[in-house]
Structure formats: structure tokens, C-alpha cells
Amino acid sequence: MKRHEIDDELTSTGAQQLLTSSSVARLAYLATDATPRVIPIGFYWTADQVVVSTAATAPKVAALSAHPDVALTIDSGDTPGDARSLSIRGRASVQIVDGVTEEYLASARKAMDAEAAAQFEQNCRELYDQMARIAITPHWVRYFDFGAGRLPQFLQELVERTG
């Protein structure tokens, strides 16, 4: 996928809403035993990368270091008309940092008021001596808005053929 195509998808209004207002994504990766995993995880969008953070000792850290290709989805909507999804494929880079990553705290702030966020930060700073900062650089992106008719290509073709 060309850079401008990635940028077009990521800068669409709906994609930006999901990237900046959602607090949980689903991350797919290969574990160290080469079997697939999908996990819910908090994330922060930097305008270039999706950053997730975890304990430096978490199993996904070793897995992503060995197999950095990942897929990520962020979605919303409880009805077909409200269903929206942002699908990202990319490569993860892992960096162990001292203390708590700023992106981890910023991600939590999306879902908390100021008082709860301050307590969360204090608890995190007491808990984590180190964290893994996992930065995912998108290589392929698609934004879907099912209610607005922005569908996967195969589904769009099916609708056009039967419509």
C-alpha cells in the first residue's frame, strides 16, 4: 500500500474518531510458539504510530521481538448501521523504557476524569520500574463505515451485483 493511501485512510474523519476517542484495540500477533494471539489492549495514536505499552516481562514482548508483524483493529457500534472499524497491518518495534510510558498514561486519560487519571498514574509509577513501549507503524490501513456504505471491496462488489 502506498504512503498516500495509508494517510488517506488514517486521516478520514471516522478513522480519526476511532484513533482518538477509543481506548481499546484488538492486537493480533504470533506468540513465540508461532500460534496466533488476539488480545484487547489500550493504545495511543501519535499521528504516525499506534503505541501500546505493557510490562517489560509480558509474553507479548518476546513474541513481538521475534515476530514483529501485527494486525490491529479498532471498532465501535452496536448495530449494523453504527458499525465502524479501522483495520491496520504493520510492524511493531519494541523498546524497554524506565518507568511508565507517557503514551500509556495518555491512553488511560481518554477514559478517565482528572482525579481518576491522577490516581491511575500514581499507581502505575509505583508498580512499573520498566515498561515495554511497542510502536506499530502502519503498512496497510482500511477504514470501514458499514452504515455509510464504506464496505470491504468484496462486500461492495456483492452489494453492487445483487442491487
Rank of each mutant, 00 (worst) to 15 (best):
M1T: 13
M1E: 12
R3Q: 15
H4R: 14
D7C: 05
D7N: 14
D8R: 15
D8F: 09
L10M: 10
G14M: 08
A15P: 06
A15Q: 08
L18K: 07
T20L: 11
T20K: 13
S23H: 11
V24Y: 04
R26M: 09
L27S: 00
A28M: 06
Y29N: 01
D33W: 02
R37L: 00
I41M: 06
I41H: 00
G42R: 01
F43I: 02
F43M: 03
T46W: 06
Q49P: 02
Q49A: 14
V50S: 04
V50A: 05
V51L: 02
V51S: 01
A55C: 02
T57W: 10
V61E: 10
A63P: 01
A63E: 01
L64A: 02
L64M: 12
L64T: 00
S65N: 11
A66T: 08
P68D: 03
P68I: 02
P68L: 01
D69C: 05
D69R: 15
V70N: 05
L72C: 04
L72E: 03
L72W: 04
T73W: 09
T73K: 00
I74T: 06
D75W: 03
D75I: 05
S76H: 06
S76G: 12
D78C: 09
D78Q: 13
P80K: 07
A83F: 15
S87L: 13
S87F: 11
I88R: 07
R89L: 11
R89V: 13
R89M: 11
G90N: 08
G90H: 07
A92N: 04
S93K: 13
I96P: 05
I96W: 10
D98H: 11
V100T: 12
E102V: 09
Y104V: 01
L105H: 07
S107Q: 11
A108D: 09
A108C: 06
A108P: 08
A108R: 12
A108E: 09
R109I: 05
R109D: 11
R109E: 13
K110N: 03
K110C: 03
M112V: 01
A114C: 05
A114P: 10
E115G: 09
A118L: 06
Q119A: 14
F120L: 05
F120V: 02
Q122M: 09
Q122G: 04
N123R: 15
C124L: 13
C124H: 10
C124Q: 14
E126L: 12
Y128D: 03
M131E: 14
M131I: 03
T137C: 05
P138C: 08
P138R: 03
R142V: 10
Y143A: 07
D145R: 10
D145Y: 03
F146H: 14
F146V: 12
G147E: 08
A148R: 14
L151V: 08
E157A: 15
E157R: 15
E160W: 05
R161K: 15
R161V: 09
